[in-house]
Design a protein around this nucleic acid. Sequence first.
DNA 1: GACAAATTTGCACAAATATGCAAATATAAG
DNA 2: CTTATATTTGCATATTTGTGCAAATTTGTC
Lengths: 112, 112
Amino acid sequence: MERIQHQALADLLKALGEFNRLSLVYELCQCDKPRNAMCLCECCSVDASVASRHLKILAEQGVVQIKKKGRERIYSLNRSEVANQLRSLADQIEGCSPAVSTTTNHRPRKAI
Amino acid sequence: MERIQHQALADLLKALGEFNRLSLVYELCQCDKPRNAMCLCECCSVDASVASRHLKILAEQGVVQIKKKGRERIYSLNRSEVANQLRSLADQIEGCSPAVSTTTNHRPRKAI
DNA sequence: GACAAATTTGCACAAATATGCAAATATAAG
DNA sequence: CTTATATTTGCATATTTGTGCAAATTTGTC
């Protein structure tokens, strides 16, 4: 159970943890409209096939969504889902400070 | 430069995006006291040298802190730093959305 | 100084990964 | 039907990565 979740999270982080894939995410982040692969592959100056493969990996991890439109694929970010997973991990990491019960579901204040 | 920041973030995510390394992080997360490598390497059943290398990678990315104590190295999580970086990315990803919500725990997003 | 314990490093190796090119596929347009 | 465009897939390849074992290193204990 826990292992599977950890593996899934590791897969997500690994998907995001590659420069060109993260660049694709940032590119999708900046443009307000969804984009196709030809447009996206320019941001990291790689072959279209490479961008296609990267976007597939991101889609497998739920980072992006794919919509078929004619001969194009329109990609868009699964914004809240990804953000929530990242925040969940952040909460777990930050919430582990000494004297915090393991089952409490409270959100610790951002420490600054 | 933006590229460098993106690369650094990708490196952090890559460091976290490996099962055994993430297990080490979770292990450090659960135990209230800092731990040495011998203790930590049990959680992912790998050789001590492997755990040492993984912890080194985590340290290079600022995920963990190392303190020398005798012949041991005591590892502890850089909790708020890592959490803040993850939340920063989450904010960037979610902040590019026209309307943000769908979360039970709503966190005011950073300025865009 | 001799020995034990914790950690790092060198080495080897298998597996995974990122990449580009060319071919195949899908679909729109003429 | 033919052509053009967007994407995927097959193949080859160079690089990275995770791993274990043994040796080296560091440091505490006797």
